[in-house]
């Protein structure tokens, strides 16, 4: 057996020299799956405690138990489902309309330079208009039924989708398009096989933003003549100063946002597994 493999020899050698000190710790991202939950639990416990001890007035800051009670009330009397159904329908139709229109215009602007020359200043001019300011006009144009609610959400979703789509097309590597041209692929094939899938990451990132916008705008949309809907519910609770019910509605809205975000993450993981 050679000396170097002798354990005693090795240990003697290392005891002579100085051990190299490890200095590469920290600055890495580790997963702490329970930390977020624990932080939430502590926060809620503190909140409840503050209310119980009378440190916070139940009117100014309803305790989590009151919010939970209001939520349970919504579930048991069926109003949660009724409101959720109305809002989800509006979000779905409005979002699909705005997204379809936005992608169509975005693609035109991404591909044809004339469309872009016309479109960019128009989008810049119309995008920042608060859709809520247009509500009275929407009532005149689309009435106070569902169409004006679809329009409010659809308009809000349309412009960010246009911007996301044409920026996404700009991000499609030009070398892939040159490659396709050098193999004689026709224009339509290039669009279908290269531009569309290449723009998909950018478009999906846009979906994330427009889904949140749709959620925000459903509250605004339900300001107009809505009998049911989470937005209408939250507005009514606010008008009636029922702060616990108000927070219960807000909780439902944020859970809805979380659910939509999770669905989009799954979609991204499936469609963009090539990244």
């Amino acid at each position: 057996m050679p000396d170097s493999l002798n354990p005693t020899a090795v240990s003697t050698a290392s005891s002579l020299g100085q051990p190299v000190r490890f200095r590469g710790g920290g600055f890495t991202v580790k997963r702490h799956p329970w930390a977020a939950l624990a932080a939430f639990a502590v926060l809620i416990a503190l909140w409840e405690g503050a209310s119980r001890l009378g440190l916070a007035s139940p009117l100014f800051l309803p305790p989590p138990s009151a919010v939970g009670h209001a939520l349970v009330g919504m579930v048991t009397d069926g109003s949660l489902w009724l409101n959720l159904k109305a809002s989800l329908g509006r979000i779905a139709v409005g979002w699909v309309l705005g997204t379809a229109g936005g992608m169509l215009v975005g693609f035109a602007m991404g591909i044809f330079s004339t469309a872009r020359a016309v479109g960019v200043p128009l989008v810049s001019a119309f995008f920042p208009i608060p859709k809520i300011a247009l509500l009275p006009l929407f009532i005149l144009w689309f009435g106070i039924g569902e169409p004006s609610k679809f329009a409010t959400i659809g308009f809000g979703v349309f412009f960010p989708t246009v911007i996301a789509t044409y920026s996404a097309i700009d991000q499609v590597p030009r070398n892939l398009i040159r490659m396709a041209q050098s193999f004689g692929l026709p224009w339509r094939s290039i669009l279908r096989s290269i531009v569309l899938p290449g723009a998909l990451p950018g478009i999906l990132a846009g979906f994330r933003i427009t889904a949140s916008i749709a959620l925000i705008l459903v509250v605004a949309a339900e300001m107009i003549g809505a009998e049911y809907g989470i937005g209408a519910f939250v507005l009514m609770a606010g008008n009636l100063m029922q702060t616990d019910t108000l927070l219960a509605g807000v909780l439902v809205l944020s859970l809805l946002g979380l659910a939509i975000g999770t669905v989009l993450s799954q979609l991204e993981r499936r469609l963009l597994n090539w990244r």
Binding site: N175, M179, S182, G184, P186, S189, S193, G198
Partner: peptide, 29 residues
């Protein structure tokens, strides 16, 4: 099918297509 054909420095492969579909791309039309 394509008398003058390129081979690229950066390979110019579609990242979302499998190997065989990348080859198949240039036959599709």
């Amino acid at each position: 099918l394509n008398p003058i054909t390129f081979i690229f420095q950066d390979f110019a492969l579609l990242p979302w297509r499998s190997v065989e579909d990348n080859v198949g791309l240039v036959l599709e039309h």
